[in-house]
Design a protein around this nucleic acid. Structure first.
Lengths: 103, 103
DNA sequence: CCGACAGATAAGCATAGACTTATGTGATGC
DNA sequence: GCATCACATAAGTCTATGCTTATCTGTCGG
């Protein structure tokens, strides 16, 4: 079910790619700038993100513009919503938990 | 960073274990009921969920009671919140997206 | 048409991860 | 004390996955 999404996000390289795309859509070459990653590797990562519904592509001449696909995020949101019962009820509890998690 | 959490949830067996625990805390043996999984495998899965902060344990005699740890869910929520900008703004857009995702 | 470029795909390799069987550890009951 | 139970850990195996190099597809400028 959600395996593809969580698998896609389990890889740190793919998470950085996704994060870059979240700032703004761009093509595969632009995504590579500043990252030590080969062209095929990037292409493969994008394919994984794409089939997980986290990213979508749009052909633009000989470039392919990638952008965040909200569908993937919504799928995670839906999964998370199933466990709403375990979310800290009071703001103070959440704050305390976040403080605990920091260290 | 979040690799441990997403890796933990990438496995379908671990997601079912987590889901079971979300209904109510129980020990490792109870968790195995109805699942075709060896005792060591369960123990290993629980260790992964535990070190991802998704589950926590409480010793009870010779049993170990496992339960959902809200900290893990909150961490996912925090990650998701970073991409709030891509969440459908209007309810209608969300509904339409969910409808699209169904088929 | 052709050379250069953007990107995808193929095939091989090396490591990570999920399983197995065997054994270790600690609590319980007789 | 000792057998048993609940669980953890060790070590080995097999598959999945992320990388590499090499090659293919498709688009552009001349």
């Amino acid at each position: 079910m959600e395996s593809d999404i969580f698998k896609a996000l389990a890889d740190p390289t793919r998470r950085s790619v996704f994060e870059k795309l979240a700032v703004g859509g761009m093509n595969a070459s632009d995504l590579r700038r500043g990252m030590t990653i080969s062209q095929p590797a990037m292409s493969q990562h994008l394919a994984v993100l794409r089939s997980a519904g986290l990213v979508r592509e749009r052909r633009e001449g000989r470039f392919v513009n990638y952008e965040v696909d909200p569908a993937g995020l919504v799928r995670i949101g839906q999964w998370l919503a199933r466990y709403r019962a375990y979310w800290p009820r009071r703001i103070d509890d959440l704050k305390a938990l976040l403080k605990d998690m920091d260290q």
